[in-house]
């Protein structure tokens, strides 16, 4: 199978990869760039574990192909902290017990960052509706909502 080159700026750094055209953005991040923070849950757009920001917008990395994002800027969970300083939403997840097993957490946090930036975090009900693309099998929802409310209140 022929491969194709794509260059994607991931967490501020231009990364070039050669991959099969079938490679999803999720597999490009995980398998080619070894950024395994972004999780593969359903691989069908149904769980949100793979949420990343592409040019600032949250999308499901599993339902898009890497080559569609040549030249784009992608932010993953690995790109949120500044050095050792956690992103305020990461800190809020710890404060509020926004996780149990942690599998959905990178997707929840990246999605939550976008939810706040979009201005969709003004109430618990609004957060519930606008975070519904992120499923948590452990049912850590109360902590997740509390964390997003807390971080939204501070920003």
């Amino acid at each position: 199978m022929s491969t194709r080159g794509v260059t994607i700026t991931v967490n501020g750094e231009a990364r070039s990869i050669e991959c099969d055209p079938r490679t999803s953005l999720l597999d490009a991040l995980r398998e080619h760039l070894h950024l395994t923070g972004t999780k593969k849950g359903c691989n069908q757009g149904a769980c949100g574990a793979c949420t990343v920001l592409v040019d600032g917008r949250r999308i499901n990395a599993c339902l898009t192909l890497a080559f569609m994002h040549d030249g784009a800027e992608v932010t993953t969970i690995e790109g949120l902290a500044t050095g050792d300083a956690l992103h305020p939403l990461q800190a809020a997840f710890i404060d509020c017990d926004g996780l149990q097993c942690g599998f959905c957490t990178p997707g929840q946090i990246v999605s939550g960052v976008a939810c706040i930036n979009e201005g969709h975090a003004s109430s618990a009900a609004e957060i519930q509706a606008w975070m519904s693309g992120n499923i948590c099998r452990c049912g850590a929802y109360p902590g997740i909502i509390a964390a997003i409310s807390q971080a939204a209140g501070r920003s």
């Binding site: 949420t51 999308i59 693309g133």
Partner: peptide, 9 residues
């Protein structure tokens, strides 16, 4: 319809 992530794409 769908989710915020899907609606963005």
């Amino acid at each position: 319809g769908a989710s915020p992530q899907l609606r963005n794409a």
